[in-house]
Design a protein around this nucleic acid. Structure first.
Length: 160
DNA sequence: GCCAACGTTGGC
DNA sequence: GCCAACGTTGGC
């Protein structure tokens, strides 16, 4: 899951009150469908900082705390995420809740991921991948955790 | 700030 | 249903 840390960072997620955060504002059908179809409660996500200069990359892990439900900001005219075509009766956009899980010991920069042979084919390393939510294969997921400095025991414990 | 990539919109 | 125009993302 990508986010611009200037808007919302991994530290913000870690600090937020009940440690769960509604992932609102997703206005892309592919991303919405991934949330709706593929994200189950308890699933893990790699948290990724985009547009962050040297700090661009994967910073840690989050858990899906709540499965897809209507994104109410979509029918709120005051919201920056307002979509006039969405309403409570005709829900167009969904969100999930996420929860901080684990920090990486070190940043796994985009550069490092691109250079890592074992991550070949991982979406985020390929050009033109703007999608803010991307599916990650288990082998890539574990490799990124390893590059982030998690121990083998810690990675095994995740049950990926 | 540039620009490639690509999603969305709307005229036809 | 095609496709040009336009908007957005995000690396650089």
């Amino acid at each position: 899951m990508k986010t611009e840390p200037d808007a919302f960072s991994f530290d913000d997620l870690k600090a937020c009150p009940q440690k769960t955060e509604p992932w609102d504002g997703i206005r892309n059908y592919q991303a919405r469908n991934l949330m709706r179809d593929d994200m189950k409660k308890g699933d893990l996500a790699i948290f990724y900082h985009s547009q962050a200069g040297e700090e661009t990359g994967a910073v840690g892990l989050a858990t899906i705390a709540k499965e897809a439900y209507p994104d109410h900001t979509s029918w709120d005219p005051k919201s920056k995420y307002h979509d006039p075509k969405s309403s409570p009766d005709n829900v167009r956009w969904l969100m999930v809740d996420v929860k901080w899980k684990q920090d990486f010991k070190q940043l796994v920069s985009l550069q490092t991921m691109k250079a890592e042979k074992a991550l070949e084919g991982m979406r985020v390393t390929m050009r033109g991948q703007r999608l803010s939510i991307q599916p990650v294969e288990a082998k890539h997921f574990k490799k990124v955790c390893q590059m982030g400095g998690l121990t083998k025991a810690q990675i095994d414990k995740l049950g990926v």
